[in-house]
């Protein structure tokens, strides 16, 4: 564990609390992509199967359980409690275009051709693109509630912080590198660049998140 990873994980936690706060206070999941949230459940379940057979640390287990539980809870809120505020007609990204390539990539690139390792790889590849339905929705509507942009910013910061974490680990842990996680992580962080540009130049200056027409 190092500071970058810890702050990254805390940012990830924060993003989930921001999202829950947004849904509960506005009593609405407007502007949130159900597809992206469903992909995150898939990611966490596929990756954290090792909860059943491997113990890393209390921190690790608690975080994994939290990420699974909170992501399932968010789906429940969207699908049942605040269902009328969820508008599937603007959540139109075709996730089969993400799932298919991720299945294929995980079958080719994995650390061992076993069910759990392929699922782990799949979860890494899928996480890297899971935000796309959400960003696509944002692009389509051209605007977002400020709180929703804080959610996305926290998620982006989490991903960005994992990069110095890998550099730090490479230096301090004698050249240790996880090529699958790093490659997918760089792609994932890259997807946030456009968003961050608007976030920093507009939202943090007190303006509404609006994309140019």
């Amino acid at each position: 564990m190092n500071l970058f990873r810890l702050l990254g994980d805390l940012s990830h936690l924060a993003s989930i609390f921001i999202l829950l706060h947004k849904i509960q206070t506005t009593r609405s999941c407007r502007g949130i992509s159900f597809k992206t949230q469903a992909l995150y459940v898939t990611v966490f379940v596929a990756r954290y199967l090792d909860l059943f057979y491997r113990y890393v640390s209390l921190y690790n287990s608690v975080m994994k359980l939290f990420f699974i539980a909170s992501s399932v809870y968010i789906l429940y809120l969207m699908k049942y409690k605040y269902r009328p505020t969820n508008d599937p007609s603007i959540d139109t990204f075709r996730i089969e275009y993400l799932l298919g390539p991720c299945v294929l990539l995980s079958l080719i690139f994995n650390y061992k051709f076993s069910v759990t390792e392929v699922l782990w790889s799949f979860s890494i590849f899928l996480e890297s693109v899971a935000i796309l339905p959400q960003l696509f929705m944002l692009q389509r509507t051209g605007e977002a509630e400020t709180i929703t942009t804080h959610y996305l910013a926290a998620l982006g910061v989490y991903r960005a912080l994992y990069i110095p974490n890998w550099i730090y680990r490479y230096i301090t842990e004698d050249g240790v590198v996880d090529p699958i996680a790093v490659t997918a992580g760089l792609v994932q962080t890259g997807l946030y660049i456009d968003f961050f540009y608007v976030y920093f130049t507009k939202v943090l200056q007190g303006q509404k998140f609006e994309l140019p027409a």
Partner: peptide, 10 residues
């Protein structure tokens, strides 16, 4: 048999 990699990151 080769051991499975321990993934210690979240």
């Amino acid at each position: 048999p080769e051991e499975e990699k321990t993934h210690d990151e979240l």
